[in-house]
Design a protein around this nucleic acid. Structure first.
Length: 282
DNA sequence: ATGCCCGTCCGTGACGGA
């Protein structure tokens, strides 16, 4: 049993059927990660799992055979997001309202990238998102990132009036504060920490969403990403960029939230660890 | 120990990741 038990919540879950376990995980190719994802689902047993960076158009049969309902938006080599749910999938929506493309003409051609999928699962409105990287603050991809975040904001603003329980989960590619990177000085001039990116997160919070900060399993840093290179995981040189942004009623019902850094260990891991949230939806 | 890039693509280096 390599995965640390999530504490007293186990007893609560067995005693109270109304606790829903929602998780998010950038798997960096669901094909390459298939055995790890299947094993992890058996251990952690989330009711809803948001996936990012599928890097393939369809989920492998071994995953869909597990009995989860699926909402998916994925096309091939790059990006790709999905929601797996065993508490229902309704009102699936692929993409954002007025979602921009990387190149301006992409949106006109409806050639936008598969980076967002929404669905209602067990009475909770869920969005699985993979925010564009940005690459460099001077790169066109950075402007695309900010436009994309504005479309996310508009989409959530439109849904909140009819979905009191709502959460946006995924790889935001933004560290909300300097405490969310291993060394702020190492990020001078880089994406993920700039004021406009952080302001986009602030705008989501202004809608009433709350940053559900998970507890860490080790150290005091609930990082969710560690680069593969230079032993950064082993030195805990990571970042908290996989986020759970939950509406007030949902955030107030959170009973536990943790980073499953055990999933970053061992053979052929993703460079991201899952974030797991237990919510009382009674 | 968790241990010092990885994944994709008709092909093998280029590109993306952050």
């Amino acid at each position: 049993m390599i995965h640390e038990a999530p504490g007293a919540i186990n007893g609560l879950r067995s005693a109270t059927l109304s606790v829903v376990r929602i998780a998010t995980w950038n798997v960096n190719s669901v094909v390459a990660r298939l055995p790890r994802v299947v094993e992890w689902l058996g251990i952690v047993e989330p009711d809803v799992l948001c996936l990012q960076e599928l890097k393939t158009a369809e989920l492998p049969d071994e995953l869909t055979d597990l009995g989860y309902e699926v909402a998916i938006h994925s096309t091939g080599r790059w990006n790709g997001v999905a929601i797996l749910s065993r508490v229902g999938v309704t009102d699936e929506r692929r993409g954002l309202l007025d979602e921009p493309g990387y190149q301006p003409e992409d949106a006109m051609l409806e050639a936008t990238e598969p980076r967002a999928v929404g669905a209602t699962c067990g009475g909770v409105r869920i969005w699985s998102v993979y925010v564009p990287n940005g690459r460099d603050p001077k790169h066109a991809h950075y402007e695309y990132k900010l436009r994309w975040l504005a479309a996310l904001h508009a989409t959530i603003a439109a849904e909140l009036p009819t979905h009191s329980r709502l959460a946006v989960l995924g790889d935001f590619n933004i560290a909300p504060s300097d405490a969310d990177v291993w060394n702020p000085r190492a990020f001078d001039g880089l994406t993920h920490v700039t004021e406009p990116e952080r302001a986009a997160l602030g705008a989501l919070r202004d809608l009433g969403l709350h940053d559900v900060v998970p507890r860490a399993m080790k150290y005091d840093t609930p990082f969710t990403y560690w680069d593969y290179r230079a032993g950064m995981f082993h030195k805990n040189e990571g970042m908290r960029i996989d986020l759970v942004y939950a509406s007030e009623p949902l955030a107030g019902a959170v009973r536990d939230a943790y980073v499953d850094r055990d999933a970053r260990k061992g053979k052929l891991p993703s460079d991201h660890a899952p974030v797991v949230v237990d919510v009382d939806v009674s």
